[in-house]
Design a protein around this nucleic acid. Sequence first.
DNA 1: ATAAATTTTTAGACTAATCTAAATTTTATT
DNA 2: AATAAAATTTAGATTAGTCTAAAAATTTAT
Lengths: 219, 219
Amino acid sequence: MHSFTEENYIKAIYKLLESGDETISTNAIAEKMRTKAASVTDMLKKLAAKKLINYQKYQGVSLTGKGEKIALNIIRKHRLWEMFLVEKFNFKWDEVHDVAEQLEHIQSDKLIEELDKFLNYPKTDPHGDPIPDAKGKLLVRKSKSLSQFRVNDVCIMTGVVDHSPAFLQYLDKTGFQLGNEIKIKDSVEFDKSLQIIVSKKNTFFISYDVAKNILVILK
Amino acid sequence: MHSFTEENYIKAIYKLLESGDETISTNAIAEKMRTKAASVTDMLKKLAAKKLINYQKYQGVSLTGKGEKIALNIIRKHRLWEMFLVEKFNFKWDEVHDVAEQLEHIQSDKLIEELDKFLNYPKTDPHGDPIPDAKGKLLVRKSKSLSQFRVNDVCIMTGVVDHSPAFLQYLDKTGFQLGNEIKIKDSVEFDKSLQIIVSKKNTFFISYDVAKNILVILK
DNA sequence: ATAAATTTTTAGACTAATCTAAATTTTATT
DNA sequence: AATAAAATTTAGATTAGTCTAAAAATTTAT
C-alpha cells in the first residue's frame, strides 16, 4: 500500500501537528526524520499527489483525513505492539520503542485484531499513551505536566512526555510507576524543583526538568 | 544489517539448495523470486561481495557458512512466528505464510528469544517443518512422501510438501492433521491413487498428487 | 566439432529515496 | 520599502533494486 518511508513521514507529520500548530514546516519534518529539507520536499510532493497531506509550496503541511487515518492506524499498531512486548514478552518500557518501530509496519488486519483481543483491548500503552481504536478514534488525555501543580496537590501519574530510555530508566530507578499517587510536599521557587511523596511512602526531590516530563491528573 | 531484499534472496537460495543440488542456477533463483535473471545477476554480485554466497560467473551459486547462518536465522524466525500465529492468534495453517513473511525480517534477538520461550521452544512449525535452534542447528527430518509406501503400511503424518492454501484447505476439509495415523488400505496401479484409513476411522481415496505432498514416517 | 539453443551476463535506463549546492521565496530587520 | 537572513524548493547526482535488449558463455544437438 504505502512504503515504510511514506508511513514514517505520515507518522512524523502527525506527531508534529499534535503539538498544536495548524501546519508544520519542512524543516521541522526534516529534523524529526533526521534527514535534509530537500528530501522532505520531494516526499511532500509525493504524499500530496496521493492526497495524504495538504501541501502548497512554501505554505506548510497538514494531514488530509485520509492521511490522518493512516497515521492513527500506525500509532495504533505501534502502541499495541509496545503493550504486547511489555505484557507478554518481558520487555521493559524503555526497551520497546525500536522493535515496535519495526512491528508497526506489518500489514495484516487479522493480526492487529487478534493482538488487540489477546491484550484484552487495552486503552493505553506502557507509557500511558492512548491507543487509537480500530476506527481511528483516539481518546484525548486530560493529563497535565506535574510541573503545573502546587504544594499540597495530590495527583496520579498517567504518563510521560519524554520517552527516552534515559528518562524512563531514571523513573524506574527511583521507583515511579504509572498509577502512582504523587503529593507535592514542597516547591523551591528558585529552580522550580519539587519535593514530592510517592504512594504516601517515599519522598523525593525532582528537578523542574523531570517534573515537566511527568504527566498526571489531579486525584 | 542486510536489506529485506537481500534476506529474501538468501532464503530463496537456501530453499533451492535444500532440494539436493550442489549449486543452483540464476534462472532458478529468478523463478523463485518472481523476478528476471538480469536482476538476479546483479544481486548475486552484491551477495558475493558480502561473502554470503559462493559465486563465479556462469558457474552457479551456493551459500557460504555465513550465508547459510543468515538463511537459517530467517527460517527460524519465520517458523516461530507461524507457530505463534496458529497457537496464540487463531490463525489457520493456510493463513500464516504472508504475515510470517513480513515478521521474519524483524530485527531483535530479545524478541525471538522471548517468542521461542513463549511458545515453549517448539521443534516444528504448524506445517511440521523443523525450526532451527538459536545456533542455526536444524533437525533433519526422516519423513518420506506417503506415495512411497505400500499397501498395509501404517504411517504417521508429519508434514506437507506443498504449502499452498489450496492444498492445506483440502487437507482441513477432509480432516487430515499432523500426527494422524494413516494406513494404506489399497493402491490403484493405473494412477497410483491410494485408499487410506485415517485415525482408524475414516476411509479416503487420495490421488497420487495428494499422496506425494503428504509427508509421513513409518509407525 | 561445429552450429543451434539456452543460459547468463552486461549495458543502459527507470523508480524511490536520499544528498549537496544553487536558486527562489518568505520572513525579519533596519 | 529595501535589504538581509532564513526557509524552502529545484537541479543534478547517488544508491538499491529492478527492467529490457543485446552480447557473451555454456550446453545441447546434429
